[in-house]
Design a protein around this nucleic acid. Structure first.
Length: 566
RNA sequence: CGGGGCGUAGCGCAGUCCGGUUAGCGCGCACGGUUCGGGUCCGUGAGGUCGGCGGUUCGAAUCCGCCCGCCCCGACCA
């Protein structure tokens, strides 16, 4: 392909809208353009990368025995009512209505459709297992799209769904996908790690996220340097604590604290560590208030809380509710004497000796609170968000917390959808059983961004060969000089049998412009021919990643390119 | 949804506070010349509903009101 015959539009300056490297570089290198917030057009160069990632995904899915299908993006309301998600996922769904009044949703995911499909097509255990996948556009009305294609409203996703007769089969399917994912990300040139994860809106039991470690990632991962345990911090268990010291045995005392509401302000006022505070949060879960206790230096993990509360997403209560429930405005809640409301306490609270907490009266706090004495009968559970330095749930050594980009997610779904949508099969004994499902997603467009996050330098992108838009750039300097285009063509012909993707920069631009564009876009190998070639008969071959430069005659180029791209 | 910022040529920006020539600069683009191994240089030129609507005023990019879009932070940690 000649540069002058395709559409490559690089930007000389950083676009003002882009913050993180991948977003900035995808715009600057001309991979994509924004249409509106969270919506991007893929330009020829970017689309080539996207297709390469898709093809790697496709090859590995096929290799693992999955079958590719293509489902509609628009899905009927009825299907979503069967699973109960027409309501529960309303926040991220874009709904539409036809002229005839038929209600549809732009699919944020496809469990309902695929399960409905299997319900209709498969009725015997003999046809299981089956694993169906597609590579298709998803739409999620994100609260806040950001970082370009990293969190967009519309994005390309590979989603796959396995159906098995029994748990053992479902475990096998899960394992196959887990392994396929490791191959996929490795082939894309990504360093990705599988971490234990929360199942979130999908439901189900076991789940792993595939994370690409990156400072700019939106997720936090708890990693144990000791035993290799790793989990999303939302998922990481925080171990039961111990009492942290002797109590004085003194009675609870009331202390006026006018206007002091935050742990920070109170810690200063009492000259006490935040670890001495019993932070009392009033949540609303399914409209019902509940008091949640955690040590002052810790944060609540709402995903753990949701599970303890039976699944409803808890939201912090408004000031009015707090006043009604505790008798005091926000900032003065405490567990002592709190009645008419459920109380959940995090393990960390059990540790606190002679603690400080709200007095459930405006401008009043209590000191010398010992939870076992002053709030007898509380149950202590794990509600805390894991933090760096916490003991590893597996081996007890202190964990580290790193940031990462979630590029893939695998779930064991169980029978939630197969029951709801009637994906049942006859078993050997003639009985009916719901298929046991798994679902497996890869954010394909996000993976492109993740590759760039991991492979860039101050000059631009440094593509891994497997996903580069073109693996080789043949760059002609002074292409109007007799002999130069001929030399370029000769090298391109010599490379043709290798099957490499080759772009030929035939623009009559200055050397600096062409070299800078080459570096910005990040072609793995650049071959330069110009007047120097006419003089010496040698082409310059440069490897983007290592900056190795070789000067060789055209006939040696293919072997050298093979070596550099190996 | 809350807070902050921004919106002037394809891109990056100045001008707005303090209203007053034909609204500027750099890049890019077109044409001519020049140069030719790391964003050449010179010249000529095209390109603008100053986000939109309304208001104030003799006069609005500039002041006021409403709306829209985009980016960032947060989404209540008591």
């Amino acid at each position: 392909m000649k540069w002058t015959e395709t559409l490559i539009a690089t930007l000389r300056e950083d676009p003002q809208e882009a913050e993180i490297p991948s977003h900035r570089l995808m715009l600057r290198a001309g991979l994509m353009r924004k249409l509106a917030s969270g919506l991007y057009t893929w330009l020829p160069l970017g689309l080539r990368v996207l297709r390469k990632v898709e093809n790697i995904v496709r090859e590995e899915m096929d290799r693992a025995g999955a079958l590719e299908i293509l489902m509609p993006i628009l899905q009927p309301r009825e299907l979503w009512e069967k699973s109960g998600r027409w309501e529960s996922m309303d926040a991220i769904m874009l709904k539409a209505r036809t002229h005839g009044g038929r209600e549809l949703v732009l699919g944020p995911t496809h469990e309902e459709v695929v399960t409905g499909l299997v319900a209709g097509e498969i009725s015997s255990y003999r046809r299981l297992p089956v694993n169906l996948y597609q590579i298709n556009t998803k739409f999620r009305d994100e609260i806040r799209p950001r970082f370009g294609v990293m969190r967009s409203r519309e994005f390309i996703m590979k989603d796959g769904y396995s159906f098995d007769l029994d748990e053992a089969g479902a475990d096998r399917s899960y394992r196959l996908m887990y392994e396929a994912y490791q191959r996929i990300f490795r082939r894309c040139g990504l360093e990705a790690m599988a971490v234990e994860a929360d199942t979130g809106m999908m439901g189900g039991r076991e789940s792993h996220e595939f994370m690409v470690p990156a400072e700019t990632g939106e997720d936090e991962i708890a990693v144990c340097p000791g035993c290799g345990y790793s989990a999303n911090v939302e998922q990481a268990a925080v171990r039961e604590g111990q009492f942290n010291g002797a109590r004085t045995g003194e009675a609870v005392r009331e202390v006026p604290t006018p206007g002091l509401r935050t742990v920070e302000e109170l810690a200063e006022f009492f000259s006490a560590s935040p670890r001495r505070f019993i932070k009392t949060l009033i949540y609303l879960a399914g409209g019902k208030p509940v008091a949640v206790l955690v040590r002052g230096d810790r944060e609540i993990n709402e995903s753990k809380l949701a599970k303890k509360l039976g699944g409803a997403q808890p939201v912090l209560a408004d000031g009015e509710t707090i006043l009604r429930v505790t008798g005091a405005p926000l900032g003065f809640s405490g567990p002592v004497g709190l009645e008419g409301i459920g109380i959940l306490a995090d393990y960390s609270v059990a540790e606190i000796a002679d603690g400080i907490t709200g007095g459930n009266r405006e401008d009043l706090h209590l000191v010398n609170v010992n939870i076992d004495r002053d709030c007898p009968g509380l149950e202590f559970v794990d509600l805390a968000l894991a933090a760096a330095g916490d003991p590893c749930p597996s081996c007890g050594k202190p964990i580290a917390v790193r940031r990462g980009i979630e590029v893939g997610h695998v779930f064991k779904l169980g029978t939630k959808y197969s029951r709801a949508l009637g994906a049942v099969v006859k078993d050997e004994a003639g009985g009916e059983r719901p298929a046991i499902m798994g679902c497996y997603g890869i954010g394909v467009s996000r993976t492109v961004a993740a590759v760039i996050e991991q492979h860039n330098d101050d000059r631009g992108i440094v593509w891994p060969a497997a996903v580069a838009p073109y693996q080789v750039l043949v760059l002609a300097l002074a292409p109007d000089q007799p002999g130069v285009p001929e030399a370029a063509e000769e090298i391109i012909s010599a490379l043709a049998p290798t099957g490499r993707d080759i772009l030929y920069d035939d623009r009559p631009a200055s050397a600096g412009v062409k070299f800078n564009d080459a570096d910005l876009i990040g072609f793995p190998v650049r071959i330069t021919v110009g007047k120097r070639f006419l003089r010496t008969g040698l082409a310059e071959v440069k490897h983007r990643a290592s900056e190795e430069v070789h000067t060789v005659p055209p006939e040696e180029v293919p072997a050298l390119v093979d070596r550099l791209l190996a």
